[in-house]
Design a binder for these strands. Structure first.
Ligand SMILES: [Mg+2]
Length: 185
DNA sequence: GCGACAG
DNA sequence: ATCTTGTCGC
């Protein structure tokens, strides 16, 4: 099973969504949402401190825990090698993979037919293009998973640019936000 | 000091 | 991330 996590915002609240999909069929097995006050502003490199609380709250509500979580953020591809995906994996003590829609650091470099993100002589992640001629997603190690395995499972879970786990979590968070918004009017 | 900068 | 209409590509 593969899980996905993402957070939406409304007012001063964070709305997190966690989903669990079947690795083979990509069918949604379970999902959960949780909301909590945002206590930290967004500062590049410190995203995890802002999104970890709501994310953990949503994950805690899942009855079945997936074998690995895809996170909508960087993992090892971070200045301190500790992006949100790493932070979440350490907090849960479970495997995680970072799948970001844009780059934080690292120089995209062509190596053996793939585009690695290099920083200070180290391969910290990989730019993965699901569909030719489309913007890539930046995959990096989160916790307990190698970059090679991370890229492999990301491909297995992809139908469009953003892999299903993260996409489903993002959509659920957005829909939940909309409902809360209308109820507030 | 200047530019870059996940979500 | 959020605001926000039409428009482009698959
Ligand atoms: Mg997000």
């Amino acid at each position: 099973m593969v899980g996905g996590v993402d957070v939406a915002y409304l007012g001063g609240f964070g709305i997190a969504a966690a989903v669990v999909l079947d690795y083979s069929t990509l069918e949604i097995l379970e999902s959960a949402v949780a909301t909590c006050p945002v206590k930290v502003p967004y500062i590049p490199t410190l995203l995890s401190f802002r999104e970890l609380p709501p994310a953990l709250a949503a994950i805690r509500r899942l009855k079945v825990q997936p074998d690995v979580f895809f996170v909508d953020a960087q993992g090892w591809a971070h200045p301190y090698r500790c992006g949100f995906a790493c932070h979440l994996g350490l907090a849960l003590c479970k495997p995680t993979v970072g799948v970001a829609k844009s780059r934080l650091i690292g120089e995209p470099t062509e190596v053996d037919g793939r585009t690695l993100l290099l920083d200070k002589g180290e391969a910290i992640g990989e730019a993965v293009t699901i569909k030719e001629h489309s913007k890539p997603v930046y995959v990096s190690v989160g916790n307990m998973v190698s970059l090679e395995t991370a890229v492999e499972i990301v491909h297995q879970c992809s139908r469009s640019r953003v892999p299903e786990p993260t996409l489903q979590a993002h959509n659920l968070a957005a829909r939940t936000k909309s409902k809360l918004a209308e109820g507030h009017l």
